[in-house]
Every structure is written in C-alpha cells, then in structure tokens.
Design a binder for these strands. Structure first.
Lengths: 232, 232
DNA sequence: CGCCCTTCTTGAACGCGTTCAACTACCGAC
DNA sequence: GTCGGTAGTTGAACGCGTTCAAGAAGGGCG
C-alpha cells in the first residue's frame, strides 16, 4: 500500500548486497508487529503488507515465520551485551557482576515479555533450529557464554580450579533457567523474576566459594564428572 | 470410510454418557497415529478419517489438536505410577527409590520419544493449558508430586525438617528437568538420560543428607526462603 | 404416537503458514 | 547496446487447524 521511496542515495555501506534493504525492512516490520500484536496474531500476510512487499518475498529472506524469531534472538543478545557493559566496568565482586548481568538480560527482554512468552514454545522444540541448544543458535549462544566468562574473569572470586572452566557455561544455563522462569512469570512487572535473580545469585556465589571446601570437594567432583559425561 | 459397528451390546459401564465411545475412539486413534507418524505429521483430518468420524466431531470432544496431548499426559502419568509400584515395594533407600521412579518415568515415555520431542514445544508455552505448571494440568501434576512424596515417605532417608515438606515438589521439578533433557537427548536409546539419572540421584541423595550439616544450614535456609518467596 | 430438548454429528468454509512457477530488475561481458 | 545470468519479486494455490450453521439421533413426557 505505502509507496516505498526509491532507494537512491544510500551511499553508506557499499558492501551491502542488493536485497539487504528489503531484508532489513521485512525484519524491522516483523519485530514491530510482533511487539505490537504478539507473535501468533502477526500474520505473514500482515508483515508483507506493512512492509509493502509480497508474501513470498519474506520467504526469500527468511525460511519461515519462526526464523524471524532468530533475528530477535541475535538482536537481544547484542542489546544484552551492551546493557551489561556498565556493570562489567563498575562492579568487581562476582555476585554483583552476575546479578547485574542477569538483570540487564531481563531489562532487555522486558518490553517483549508478552510476545516472548508465546514464541518461547517454538524455542523449546528440540528439532527446531530455534532451540538455544541448536547448531543454528550457536552464534548467539557462544556470545552469551562469553559474556558470563567476562563476569567471572573480571571478578575477584576464588573458584575451584576444575570448576572454573565449566562455570561460564553453567552460568549461561542458569540464565536460561531465569529466562524460562521469566517467561512463565505472571507477576506484575515480572517482579518475581527479579526476586529470583536476587535470591539465586548469593546462592551461586556461596556455592562456588564452598566448592573449595573439603567436605564438598567430593560433591564438586561428582558434579563435574557428570557434566563431562553428559557433554558428548 | 470404515463402517462403525453399531454400539449395541456395550452393557458394561452404564454410567458412560452417550458419546463416551466416540471420545475414546478418537483419542485412541490419535494416540496411535501420533506414535506412528509423529505429532506434526498427523492431521486432524487423518485422525477423523481413521476413526470414521467427521473432522468437526473431534472438536466436539477435544478443544484443539493440542488438547489431545493432554490425554497423552494423563495416560503417561497413570502408566508411570503403575511402573513405579514394584520399585516402591522393593526398595527402601531414598536413592534407590528415586532412581527407580525416575527410570520408570523414562521407561514409560521411551516408546513415544520421537513424537514427544515435537510436541513438547506446545507444553513449554506458558499461556497454553498444556504447560505442566498450568491449572489445567494440575491433576496429573498433583499425582506426580504425590508419587515423589511416596518416594520420600517410604524411604529411610533423614532429611532436614524444614526441607522435607518442600522436597516432593522439588523432586518433581528435578524430574521435569530430566524429561526436558530426555526430550533433547539425541543419543541412541537416550542413554545419556539414563546416565543423567544415575549421576544426579546420588547428588540429590548426598545434598539432602548434607542439608542437615552445620556449614550448610544457612544455605539450606536461603534456598527454602527463596522457594517460599517465589511460590506466590 | 408426537413433541421437545439435549446431545451428538456433519462438512463446507475461513484464515493461516508455506511453496513455487513465472516474471522483472539489475549488472558485467562482449 | 544487447545479451545472459544472477538476484530479487510476485501472487495464486495447497494443505493445515479450526469454526459453525445446520441437521440427525436419542430419550423423557403427555
């Protein structure tokens, strides 16, 4: 419906391919509609119409409606990293850094809570490329794990030597748990999720510190052995 | 297509309503096709045709295709309870009982692994009545938690007094975690899930025992406080 | 038997995500 | 300039889950 202005004076990134503009247009339109109407209520026809293209054109750039979600992932991850920067600059203690980064993640996701809730079902399907554990999601996942490595590395925490290399991924897993809780969180403003973070961070802090304690070393070993067994 | 024999001599349960036969017929046909073809590949039209009824008739008994999954839940829960009985009769130690019940749960689910994997996405959606945390699923959920209460009650385990009342639900949560892992488990025969159970049960066993230890009592309190905060 | 009301059953129709054969726009090669 | 091939674009068509107005079946009651 809306006439697209001719893409004349876009001399900025000469490296962009011909269809890059259309791709971004479709992606941005989709993200906007998802946020406005929710995932299920946003039809591919509506996205195409609002973007001023044909339905099939959207499928030229994105394999399916679900694949548009992956754009949301990637975008969120970048925003999360940016939102975490001040915390990483400011805080030194492990607990404060971890809490800050977890809160930053939820901060970024909060505006999309309603729509995120409905699409997380797609992410939970193991066969789907959208699963956070899938190969297709390895990019954002690795970046997220790297973020938690920064949380650990920049901190003053003393951690069991064998646990340390595994910890970033475990922290990411904990973050996935927080997100899972957040998705189900029906409390106003998702206050409960904030309480979960504030409650679970001191626990993690305490447990990692205790991991060096003599009585707990066998348990620590047991946990690490199990993890090694389960990871291929 | 196939002629349905007239429901003449069904004098067995006089309490059953008129359409109860049709309901069961549709349910059983759906379960069979789900197992044979998978969830996505089984169309409502195919279910109706195989059952010898009209499409709309299936919707008279089941609100949606997803609602047929709930039948699968309920059925699985009953089978799980039955499969767990020998273990509960035989074993006395907490660890053996817990491991046995967890393995029994996976035993029951194993024949449906492929199809379960594709439908779990529906279960993960918070707004869906199919979520194991939803009100609609409270029946099977309560039954499952009661099963883990039996695991605990019949055992010789000594558990922190404050932890004990919370433990059955926590064990059920752990079971949900095992199922989540199982759903994603691509190892042949889901061997890894078995290893997860065998690895995590001694851990839980050890931690519940350690929960009475002086050094850990503050941590135990912290955990219990957090749980109380998050539960409403 | 005839009546009515509830329960059950039907299948065409709707809107959705997705596919694909056909078409157009662009650009380097000659 | 024009030719050819790649990249981009189109919209009708398909099969799906779901809905619903219409009708059939059954049973209690006069």
């Amino acid at each position: 419906m809306t006439e697209q202005p001719a893409p004349t004076t876009t001399a900025g990134d000469p490296a962009t391919a011909r269809g890059e503009q259309t791709r971004q247009l479709i992606r941005d339109t989709a993200m906007r509609l998802f946020r406005e109407r929710g995932y299920a209520q946003t039809t591919m026809r509506a996205i195409a119409q609002e973007a001023g293209v044909a339905v099939g054109n959207a499928y030229y750039y994105f394999g399916s409606k679900d694949h548009l979600i992956q754009e949301f992932y990637a975008q969120s991850q970048v925003e999360h990293r940016a939102a975490a920067q001040p915390v990483l600059d400011r805080e030194e203690s492990f607990g404060a850094r971890l809490a800050g980064v977890l809160h930053a993640g939820i901060d970024v996701l909060t505006p999309s809570h309603e729509f995120a809730a409905t699409f997380f079902k797609t992410a939970a399907e193991p066969t789907s490329p959208l699963s956070p554990f899938s190969a297709e999601s390895s990019g954002p996942r690795e970046a997220a794990i790297a973020l938690f490595a920064e949380v650990l590395d920049g901190s003053t925490a003393k951690v069991d030597a064998d646990l340390r290399p595994q910890l970033p991924e475990l922290l990411w897993l904990a973050y996935m748990g927080v997100v899972l809780y957040w998705v189900h969180d029906r409390s106003p403003g998702q206050t409960k999720t904030r309480q979960l973070i504030d409650g679970v961070v001191p626990l993690i802090d305490r447990l990692t510190a205790l991991s060096r304690l003599r009585v707990l070393r066998p348990v620590t070993r047991q946990v690490l052995d199990l993890i090694r067994t389960l990871r291929h």
